[in-house]
Design a protein around this nucleic acid. Sequence first.
DNA 1: TGAATATAGATTACATGTAAACTATATTCA
DNA 2: TGAATATAGTTTACATGTAATCTATATTCA
Lengths: 162, 162
Amino acid sequence: MTMNQLQRELKKKQAFQSSEVEAILNVLRTGDQFQNRLGRLFREYGLTCSQYNVLRILRGEGNPMPSLEIADRMVQVVPAITGLIDRLEKQELVTRERCHKDRRVVYVTLTEKAVRLLKEIEKPGLELHEQLIGHLTRKELKELNRLLTKARAAVRATESDV
Amino acid sequence: MTMNQLQRELKKKQAFQSSEVEAILNVLRTGDQFQNRLGRLFREYGLTCSQYNVLRILRGEGNPMPSLEIADRMVQVVPAITGLIDRLEKQELVTRERCHKDRRVVYVTLTEKAVRLLKEIEKPGLELHEQLIGHLTRKELKELNRLLTKARAAVRATESDV
DNA sequence: TGAATATAGATTACATGTAAACTATATTCA
DNA sequence: TGAATATAGTTTACATGTAATCTATATTCA
């Protein structure tokens, strides 16, 4: 039997329909597992993956940002960002302020509390990332990054087909 | 500037903290984009990604399956499976039946309607998978599968740390 | 045998992700 | 200028994913 690892994990009896299907399932499953594992770490600090992502984007930018600009950097749909920021605001990790020049725009700002929290997560976060994927060699990491980037290139092309 | 593609996509100013962080973000983002695109196809047939996944598992197995067995093959947590099957039942794509021997177990069975629906999705589904990742060579697909499988191997190891 | 434990699944509570429709404000251009 | 259009964000409705807790049924083993 030439059953591969993914097939075993999914307890799949038949072979995959095609190598393409197999590769995509592989990407989905790996992403899912990483997200679950990272999510568990963030939860220890009272955050979800998405919430952490918002905080990181704000810190990376270094300045207040409009809600939609944040959403844009998160592969996330607009309506979701509202509730996400609501909850961060309730935790006092961000503040919201309406723009004076363009009153449609809402600026979101990181609080000191959030900066401290991010600093606290930094070390265990880096360590977990290393544990998760540090057993790949430099060369393998580089090749993985190249292949994934190449893979994503086609996604936008299929969008216009719709 | 040695800014790479992922950095550009995320409009990230600073470099990634480490190659490990970059690779993991790359996996997460690619998985997310694939899932979004596939989800849009399934929605044309009234299904979500997870619902499609359940139907595929049932068809692959060929026999009625206990709820938890389905959940186990889906990276999904138990409580979610109940509502998922509820909705499939409402759409008349599966039926539920309690096991006589062990009355705790609920067997889920695919309906004829579901089999027809899966057949209908098959061709456009395969085509989309090819569009999404078919521009990678055979060799690249194989290497991608190898690297992802290797990457996942560490996830379980980090679980026991918790 | 019968109490302790394990297993299958459901329920509840909450955060997230998606779509569609809506409000408020800006911009464009005839 | 003022109607048409675009933009930023919210609201609503629903499917999903996670954790904690609960019920019903089986199993184990003193």
